[in-house]
Simulated scan of single mutants.
Amino acid sequence: MIGILLITHGSYGEALIQNVCHVLNRRPALIAQFGVAAQDDPLDILPLARLLLKEVDGGEGVLVMTDVFGATPGNLALKLLEPGHVEGVA
């Protein structure tokens, strides 16, 4: 199963997951969110983002989604990319 990691501003990612839980009546497996606060330093939070990425990786890869390309969550997601492991960046 492909994992899903949401990297968003504040609690937006958790709100999206709660909406999915409401529709499915359960929390999907291999899904996590990482809320970035305004005062967070991207280099300081990068290790935690890498840890979450590993936690949701079931062996088939992880879909990483962000809320705003070019903002801190999007830039953090780009730092998670590993050469040779990227299928595509949209």
Rank of each mutant, 00 (worst) to 15 (best):
A77S: 12
T72I: 08
P47I: 02
D67C: 08
A37K: 14
A77N: 05
E55G: 01
G84Y: 10
R26Y: 14
L76F: 06
D44N: 11
L63P: 07
A49H: 01
V68A: 06
G84W: 06
G58E: 02
V64W: 02
Q33T: 15
I45F: 01
L46M: 10
A29S: 15
K79L: 13
G59P: 11
V36T: 01
Q33D: 15
G59E: 05
V68I: 15
I45G: 02
N25I: 15
L46T: 12
A29Y: 07
G74I: 09
E82Y: 03
N75H: 06
P42G: 04
Q33F: 11
G58M: 04
K79Q: 10
G35W: 00
L48E: 14
D57F: 00
P28I: 14
P28D: 14
L43C: 10
P42K: 03
L76G: 07
R50W: 01
D57H: 02
G61Y: 00
A38W: 05
V36Y: 00
F34S: 04
L81I: 13
E55M: 07
G74E: 03
D67N: 11
D44V: 12
D44E: 14
F34N: 13
M65N: 05
D67L: 08
D40G: 11
D41Q: 13
T66A: 09
L80Y: 04
P47A: 09
G58R: 06
E55S: 13
E55D: 14
L78M: 12
G84L: 03
A38F: 10
L81F: 04
L51S: 10
P73Q: 03
L51T: 12
L81P: 07
I45N: 04
D40Q: 00
F34G: 12
G84C: 09
D57M: 00
A49F: 02
L48G: 02
T72K: 07
L81M: 11
Q33C: 15
G74V: 11
L51I: 05
T66Q: 02
A38H: 12
G61D: 01
L76Q: 04
A29L: 15
V56A: 02
N75L: 12
F34R: 05
L78G: 09
V64I: 14
L43G: 13
G58Q: 06
A32G: 13
L30E: 01
R50Y: 01
K54I: 00
L48S: 12
E82F: 03
A77C: 09
G59K: 10
L48R: 13
L81Y: 05
N25W: 09
A37Q: 14
D40C: 03
D57R: 00
D57T: 01
Q33Y: 11
A32K: 15
D57G: 00
G74P: 14
G35N: 02
F69I: 10
E60R: 12
R50N: 07
F34Q: 09
A38E: 11
